[in-house]
Design a binder for these strands. Structure first.
Length: 686
DNA sequence: GTAGGGTTAG
């Protein structure tokens, strides 16, 4: 920086610094700083304040703090305010509050610039009490009529969830200030009062107030969850009319809204029309797919995002990991994990929580545990992810231990924690524990059990043969039993052969989910197991006449990033001959070890030999043969199945694990089966 | 010389 010939004054320096601050020109500012030191102007109040502001605006809070601490004039309220704002704007909200406290203690006066900054800090950390005290000081010192101060008050109260005081602050304002109204709208949205948010938006419109580019994102956010299509579309046309579509945040919110509605076409239309697409624009689409159950599409889009050169942030990483968990694509999940570490983004609890879930859902419970242990500050979601993960992997007793640890660490369980916990009890057969936890839900934590909790309890009771109690529980339900509950009951009947109740549960399910083949198949299998072939056949015919078709059973196995899929008696794989020979070899060996084919799971319209062969070529058996043939010696065989594993295959897997000394991990539609040395983690109930 | 509001996940 050159000041040709003439020595600049303190005023010149501070105005140049101002320019640097406004544009975050750090290098330029640093040059001015050294120049100020050389000319002894750095201790001047104006220059010093300018430098503190410069470093704060360039996110160099340590430098700003150093200069602030070194300042000789400890009563300069502009300097204090600059420091306070610096803290507040850089995410050091608590330091900002301390700074304000120090100002008060040191007798430094506040002005109309100080209050908005300290209130913003209060809003960010939901410090309502502190904010209310500041409010009191504002009233006493007579700064209450400044529009910046007023809007900051509205925002503070709104963000702290005190909507009454926010409304009061807004109503006492003399002018209709768009910033204050926007704050009020955001406050309503964040506190779940979406209708009020939209009402306020309508009122702004009717009052012919200025509606700016800050207004739309929150309003669109409300529309996203309210699905008020008519008004949303008119807001969209208003956006187009006012040219606000060009603003990144507005367009992002539009993409998000359409994506949340499942209208991916409209979402893409807005997305494609955008000049710049940032990580949020992509995230909205990715989560749009994920919300609508298209996890594979979400993954594809995520890849496209990477190709487009967008670095994933914590939020999109967390959501793509959830998609990986849903799809149980371990390799992909691991890549995301690795790339995220490489990206240098600081980790976030959301990412870590998603990692715990992803690893657990992919059957890698040790990895889930490793991530869990690396998390220093855990929340209820972290613990719940681990509890559910262990339960899904057949380690229910561990889940219970983790629950105790969670309680001991002072974290309260929520609705979902109890689903995981009861699921754990049911899969570990811990009836007494289950009853105790179920009771404690409402009694201790005031959480009313929902259908999912009842379903777990019915599962638990049914599993341990307490059918009577299970039936009573259904009758006691305060909430209407849903399909999950009836499915739990039906599957208990299948194990215990309660034909009458099975028929009732299935019939209810036929009505609730007319296109679902599962209850038909389960009821038919229940009859078969009881030797009632005629009834079994009747149900199959009924299913056929209703046009309901069973999703064909498929098993797949991943090897070298390629997925090998098998159907029952499938001969399409290039290595078919080898695979079928291997199956035959397996059958001979496990029969020697005591395996007996369970004909209940065979087709009924073939002879005995045909039945046995049909069983032998079930998709999961083809997959395991493929795994034994082509996976490295000793490597665990990971098999996935779209439906529940059949009883015969389950039994065969146990024998195979013992005869071949292999860890077989079979993920079916219900849970993981870790099969080792003849034992399965599910305890033969699934 | 210093000040207020917005979109993405779980």
């Amino acid at each position: 920086m050159q000041f040709e010939g003439q020595k600049p004054s303190q005023y010149t320096l501070s105005s140049v610094l101002r320019m640097c601050s406004a544009n975050a020109l750090l290098t330029r500012g640093e040059q001015i700083h050294s120049y100020a030191i050389k000319t002894d102007l750095d201790s001047n109040g104006f220059v010093n304040t300018g430098l503190v502001d410069l470093y704060a605006k360039c996110k160099r809070i340590l430098e700003a703090e150093y200069l602030f601490d070194m300042a000789s004039d400890r009563k300069n309220h502009v300097l204090w305010t600059t420091m306070l704002s610096g803290y507040s704007q850089n995410g050091y909200e608590l330091r900002a509050l301390e700074c304000f406290r120090d100002m008060l203690a040191g007798g430094v006066e506040s002005n109309q610039f100080t209050f908005p900054s300290v209130l913003t800090a209060c809003a960010a950390v939901s410090a309502r009490g502190f904010g209310a005290q500041v409010h009191g000081i504002i009233v006493r010192t007579g700064f209450g009529a400044n529009v910046f101060v007023e809007s900051a008050l509205v925002d503070m109260y709104a963000k702290c969830g005190d909507l009454n005081n926010a409304r009061r602050a807004l109503e006492t304002m003399e002018v209709d200030d768009v910033v204050s109204w926007n704050s009020m709208i955001v406050g309503c949205v964040r506190n779940g009062f979406k209708e009020e948010a939209l009402f306020l938006f309508g009122k702004m419109h009717r009052k012919d107030m200025e509606i700016d580019d800050y207004t739309y994102p929150s309003v669109l956010n409300s529309f996203a969850s309210m699905k008020d299509m008519k008004n949303a579309k008119s807001a969209h046309s208003l956006i187009i009319k006012t040219g606000s579509e060009g603003y990144q945040l507005v367009s992002n919110a539009l993409v998000d809204m359409y994506a949340k509605w499942g209208e991916l076409g409209s979402a893409f239309q807005v997305f494609n029309s955008m000049l710049n697409r940032d990580v949020i624009s992509w995230t909205s689409l990715v989560t749009g797919y994920a919300h609508n159950g298209s996890h594979e599409e979400a993954l594809k889009l995520f890849c496209k995002m990477r190709v487009a050169g967008i670095e994933p942030d914590q939020i999109v990483t967390a959501s793509i990991l959830s998609a990986c968990a849903e799809l149980t694509v371990l390799k992909f999940g691991q890549q995301i994990h690795a790339n995220f570490i490489k990206s240098g983004f600081p980790s976030s609890l959301s990412v870590d929580n998603s990692l715990v879930t992803m690893y657990a859902k992919c059957g890698c419970i040790e990895d889930a545990n490793r991530v869990f242990n690396s998390i220093r500050i855990r929340n209820v979601i972290t613990w719940t992810a681990l509890i559910v993960g262990y339960a899904q992997n057949g380690k229910g007793t561990h889940s219970l231990q983790f629950y105790d640890e969670m309680i001991a660490s002072g974290i309260k369980p929520d609705f979902i924690t109890f689903i995981g916990l009861l699921f754990a009890c049911s899969h570990a057969g811990l009836v007494e524990h289950g009853r105790k936890y179920f009771e404690s839900m409402d009694k201790v934590y005031g959480i009313k059990p929902g259908p999912d909790h009842y379903a777990c309890m019915i599962d638990l009771l049914g599993r341990s043969g307490k059918m009577q109690e299970a039936k009573e529980l259904v009758n006691q339900m305060v909430v209407e039993p849903d399909a999950t509950v009836w499915k739990a009951l039906l599957s208990a009947c299948r194990v215990h052969g309660d034909l009458e109740l099975a028929e009732r549960a299935a019939t209810t399910l036929f009505e609730l989910e007319p296109q679902n083949a599962v209850p038909y198949v389960m009821l038919s299998n229940t009859y078969s197991a009881a030797g009632k072939w005629e009834d079994a056949a009747r149900i199959r015919r009924l299913m056929k006449s209703k046009g309901v078709s069973k999703e064909p059973g498929r098993s797949w196995i991943e090897m070298n990033s390629k997925v090998h899929t098998f159907m029952s008696e499938d001969r399409s794989h290039p290595n078919t001959n080898e695979i079928y020979s291997k199956v035959d070899e397996i059958m001979i060996l496990i029969k020697e070890a005591g395996y007996v084919p369970d004909m209940n799971f065979a087709l009924h319209d073939v002879d005995e030999e045909g039945k046995e062969l049909g069983l032998a070529y079930h998709s999961e058996k083809l997959a395991v043969a493929f795994g034994l043939l082509f996976l490295p010696q000793g490597a665990p065989v990971r098999i996935f199945k779209n439906l529940r594993v059949c009883g015969d295959c389950h039994s065969a897997m146990k024998f195979i694990s013992r005869v071949f000394h292999r860890h077989i991990i079979l993920r079916d539609s219900n849970c993981f089966h870790h099969v080792r040395e003849g034992m399965c983690s599910c305890g033969d109930y699934w």
